[in-house]
Design a protein around this nucleic acid. Structure first.
Lengths: 198, 198
DNA sequence: GTCTATAATGCGATAGAC
DNA sequence: GTCTATCGCATTATAGAC
């Protein structure tokens, strides 16, 4: 009685949405090269030709997958970074391994496909703006000189290190991870305290 | 008169070596999905079936490409990190964009292929050991407490940030790069100076 | 909106001649 | 060591029925 939809096929979601999610799943599990129209259609429980009813080409589908993931990430960032310890939140958010593998696939794709490169760039820059703004607030609150500590640099430092650790973990590399995590977290805790120097 | 080889086909290199280089080129230019036996054979100036004379399967070929690149990188590291400013050298070496795209391809591949994951892990850990050792020497020379500054953490910090910047640049993202580069380089210069705190 | 069927191409891998 | 030829299957994309 809650959803005024038509008749709810496999999970009440529209076919288009299911195709996007199926693509993300296949890319995550087997890589972008395995994300073929047939493989995706099977995953979504429809026939191959239907993919081309919803998306003009496979590349268009990939872009939609990226866009959908980006919106979710951006929303998660926006609400999390307004809390009382934005630096630690930034670190934790970027340490979330859920989007790691998919991100790597899109980085690889972006190196070779113009449409995906453009979409990824736009996404990355929107994220960076949000993160840098939150870091600026945090640094100012601690009385730090923003010329010595450019917020965008600090936010990149935190976010990129967190992501690097996730990327490595995803392929089984963990040497030095404990040391680096502890080092960063020690620094972040120092920064969260009253004033001082840093 | 210098090379006691047979007769020098397209560039005097052995066919096997040419296949490895052709594979690297195709992966760099068009991504791992484009690195098919036919595409590679054409690039190397031989016929498709010959690829299977030298390599049992495409995956074996990919592993050899990774291995070859790894040896070159390792050698470059070993000789560079013995100089007088290892921290800055580490930063500069990892800022070299030459291997960036290929690295991204192998990261993506490693997420889905066991043989490549194992090879990449072994390579990453050998690099890390070399880099951490060099950083340990540098930090000790500056009189820093290695418990507060674990060499492996510092070396990862420097190397991973440099690589992140390259990865982003490769897809056209440059927002905040200048600020972060300057921030890191300022820090590295401070560390290269006499004693002090940090 | 979803299907069947198909065109045109490309793939990994093998067999076997030279 | 390099080739030609081929098997069996997957691919993107389109045409057209329902």
């Amino acid at each position: 009685m809650a959803t005024p939809r038509k008749k709810a096929a496999p999970a009440d979601k529209g076919t288009r949405q299911r195709l996007i999610e199926a693509t993300a799943k296949v890319m995550r599990d087997e890589g972008y090269a395995a994300a073929t129209s047939r493989r995706i259609a099977t995953e979504a429980g429809v026939k191959q030709a239907l993919v081309y009813y919803y998306f003009p080409s496979m590349d268009d589908l990939f872009v939609e997958v990226l866009r959908a993931g980006a919106e979710v990430s951006l929303e998660r960032m926006r609400e999390a970074l307004t809390d009382d310890d934005p630096l630690m939140t930034l670190w934790k958010l970027n340490s979330d391994p859920r989007m790691t593998t998919l991100n790597t696939e899109f980085m690889a794709l972006a190196n070779h496909r113009k449409a995906i490169r453009a979409e990824l760039k736009s996404f990355a820059e929107r994220v960076r703006d949000i993160e840098a703004a939150a870091v600026a607030v945090a640094l100012r609150a601690r009385g730090l000189d923003l010329d010595d500590h450019p917020p965008v640099a600090i936010s990149m430092l935190i976010a990129q290190i967190a992501r690097s650790l996730c990327n490595e973990e995803a392929v089984g590399v963990t040497l030095g991870h404990r040391e680096l995590r502890e080092f960063v977290e020690r620094r972040l805790k120092l920064l969260a305290m009253p004033p001082a120097d840093a």
